[in-house]
Design a protein around this nucleic acid. Structure first.
Lengths: 335, 335
DNA sequence: TTGAAAGCGCTAACAA
DNA sequence: TTGTTAGCGCTTTCAA
């Protein structure tokens, strides 16, 4: 019953006294329409408040939509990417449609299937937990750009932050401040998928690598926390006792803020650094040191790659966005 | 060319040795299918990795999708609503599809049209800047739930925070702390649409009302800032000089955090309170007093109303969610 | 420059 | 219980 009474292309054609095919041409701005006909058709469209159905269009042509798989809409960094992507789509014919995934479990690719079922013209997937195999099969049918994944195949494009460089910067910063017992907090699930190189995984590996190179392999300590928005008390305890670190590096922004809170609440002199920046990290009362990634640029780049692919490019492209260390008061020289 | 080689219902039917209609019935779980046929069809679906196109389905039946118009994905409160809505949709047959709107200008209803063009089965619109007229026309075709708008019509349902009560609570709190010169910061565009009762507008009116009732009508001061994420220096100046208020009430969370920052940076003893809560407001280093609205519940309620409408309810429903004042350190007794 | 006709993949009546 | 049939609203050859 939805749209029951709504005008169709046939109604418009009838009112304008032309064929449906002619209306279709006007709508699409296709070649070979006389100005007088265009005018009459446009008047009829206006009068009937006609809008083409995406579904009917999809049956033959293109939907002119770009699907965006967006994990954890509550995480600031991801919405930043969305903003960049949406803005980049601004003046194209393409519309963004977003399928949110709330839990790690949902990032298994079902959202990508849903987008494919909608016959979107391209897909931006934000570090999905899907095997390269499956992504290649998808990319064979629809252009796909992966955000944040470090795997490189010929079938899909990627945009990644330089996690090696980012981790290098923050580790250099911490080591330079004299820290030796540096611990690492990572969120379970993000680093645990075999065959997939997530940012989380890369950063953790690099942390271990830097500890090792600094001769601190024995002091390295990785604490894993569950999926979710809070750092459970047990993880905090595991992190802060008994050989308490002087600095903690955290794999995700929101958790870094939590850790900072936990440390502050306990009155401890433990430095905390994280990944990704928000205006809140820069708030003087918080002042969290972090590796800033330009999410807006990443989103915009992803769209650019997608449009290029839709436009016909066939060889794969892999873009990297350089992170910047924002050193703030949450990291201090070790006493 | 997208999906070019993908299997259709005819392919499945052929492989299973049945009619396309039979496959359709199996897919939809429709009545009157023998177990043996179901089994064969399911095997064929599996083998061909068949997935029904949403578009083809939409041509006759339902798309089983709920459209969500989401303004400002970067604002925490809005993503909270999205989370509630997505979770509520979790175990239904319906899928959420989100169309983000980035600027105030985009909230004029074009996103709603895009969703209607996709023949979604229902629409959740988060305080869109669209006239009741136009919404009624839309709601005549598709069930619509408005979030945050205070207009009440018979054609669409609404879910709103109790902004009268919320403002009452925070004003009572500030007045109780001895504040008399209380200023109000509101974002331009949000309160300026004729005929539409946005939360922003209601809150501002209530602020004025409470000032008036407290005999402080002359001390009331409303400063408007432009659309965007920052409070421009000029607005800060306008707010803090020359008859500096002892407290500032801010219409939107992100701006409240900014104001708090500006006040702190200047070392002034000015209380700041806002609307909406985040974990960051509760961070001990920030400790921003605010009126907390349960966004998750609002999102969930919106979906519930929508499903009821889809299920056949015809009379309008208007739900209210009660806010809670979270009094924190950013508001102190006036010296 | 315009129109007629075919068909995209699916569902819903209706027949068998 | 199963299959046949007739579209849904649009785009796209191909003729006129």
């Amino acid at each position: 019953m939805a749209r029951s009474g709504a005008a169709t292309i046939v109604d418009v054609a009838r009112l304008a006294g032309v064929s449906p095919a002619a209306v279709s041409k006007v709508i699409r701005g296709a070649y070979g329409v006389s100005p007088s006909m265009r005018e009459r058709v446009e008047a009829a469209i206006e009068q009937l408040a006609y809008r083409p159905r995406v579904a009917a269009r999809a049956m033959r042509g293109s939907t002119f939509s770009i699907g965006i798989e967006l994990p954890h809409p509550g995480y600031h960094f991801f919405t930043t990417i969305l903003q960049g992507a949406t803005a980049a789509l601004g003046h194209t014919r393409y519309q963004p449609i977003v399928v949110p995934t709330a839990t790690e479990a949902e990032r298994d690719g079902r959202a990508l299937d849903l987008l494919a079922d909608r016959q979107v013209d391209g897909i931006v997937a934000v570090s999905p937990l899907v095997s390269p195999d499956r992504l290649e099969r998808l990319a064979a049918r629809i252009p796909v750009v992966l955000l944040g994944r470090h795997d490189r195949t010929a079938s899909y494009d990627t945009v990644t932050g330089d996690d090696v460089e980012g981790t290098r910067q923050v580790m250099k910063h911490l080591l330079g401040l004299g820290h030796r017992r540096i611990a690492y907090l990572v969120q379970e699930g993000q680093a645990a998928m075999p065959g997939i190189r997530t940012p989380q995984e890369t950063r953790m590996e690099q942390y271990l690598e830097h500890m090792h190179r600094a001769g601190l392999g024995a002091a390295a300590r990785v604490v894993r926390t569950v999926d979710g928005d809070v750092v459970p008390e047990s993880a905090v305890e595991a992190l802060l006792a008994p050989e308490r670190p002087t600095a903690i590096l955290v794999g995700r922004h929101e958790l870094a803020l939590e850790m900072l809170q936990a440390v502050t609440a306990r009155g401890l002199d433990v430095s905390v650094a994280g990944y990704d920046d928000t205006c809140l990290a820069g708030h003087p009362a918080i002042s969290l040191t972090c590796v800033d990634q330009d999410g807006v640029e990443m989103g915009a780049k992803a769209i650019r790659l997608l449009l290029e692919r839709i436009g016909g490019r066939t060889e794969a492209a892999h873009l990297t966005v350089e992170p910047t260390l924002k050193a703030r008061a949450s990291t201090r020289p070790v006493r």
